[in-house]
Nucleic acid binder design. Structure first.
Lengths: 128, 128
DNA sequence: TATTGTTATACTCTATAACTATA
DNA sequence: TATAGTTATAGAGTATAACAATA
């Protein structure tokens, strides 16, 4: 059931990212970088629980689209400080409401109280 | 949240199949075949919403393990009637309670009423 | 002409291994 | 000796294309 629900959601949500040349993970990186500021690539990999080479591909994609930039990392010349650009913030802000709308469509059929219930139950499953 | 919950569940459930040389999809085929009797490979593909070549790989795997058999399909000599074997039913019945136990562990933290609530809400999302 | 099963092939996604430059 | 980033490569998993047999 979880599989089906998730599949259904991602079918309606992934095209939103794909339209901008991104995938869900890359959007997640933008959100992460806008919240936490500059991060090293390994920090991104750890946060997303993926290999650092996998993270690098996404960083490459985002940089090619000028949505993030690699900067020198203060205090460690091996590392890069990955920062979201103004263009990156803009794209992220464009996506957010579209994403919220898709989520609302996905949740059509549940009233406000039921949505909260679902979220509460799921979050307990995820964190327990 | 759905993604995380599903990931968490599959981490605890996939090893159950892997221990028997199967994956979730192949177990799903066994369940399907035990419920609906003989099916053509395209029927399996349609039911699981995968390509028929992808379904074929799973049918190959299950047949190599002698959990299913390909028979002539009455009335269409192009098709194969895929049937679950006695060994297949046995493996399926061995897996079912282990799976249920894993599901219960996954749902630890929710009481009976909350589990029902979650299932009800998810099923409405899936079918709506 | 269309469909079933099959084969061969290609593509996507992800990770591992090895390299470099730093630490 | 270990770590950050990179490169090249390999492995799943899935799909597409083409084929033979049959409809």
């Amino acid at each position: 059931m979880l599989t089906k629900a998730r599949e259904r959601l991602s079918v309606s949500v992934e095209p939103i990212f794909a339209d901008r040349g991104l995938c869900g993970r890359e959007f997640g990186m933008l959100v992460l970088l806008s919240r936490r500021g500059a991060l090293r690539q390994t920090d991104l990999a750890d946060a997303l629980r993926i290999d650092r080479t996998t993270a690098m591909h996404s960083v490459d994609t985002l940089q090619a689209a000028a949505l993030i930039q690699r900067h020198p990392y203060p205090g460690d010349r091996r590392a890069h400080a990955v920062k979201i650009t103004a263009a990156g913030k803009k794209v992220m802000k464009q996506i957010l409401p579209v994403l919220a709308a898709a989520e609302r469509r996905f949740l059509t059929g549940l009233d406000a109280a039921e949505r909260e219930q679902l979220m509460a139950l799921l979050s307990r499953l995820v964190t327990s």
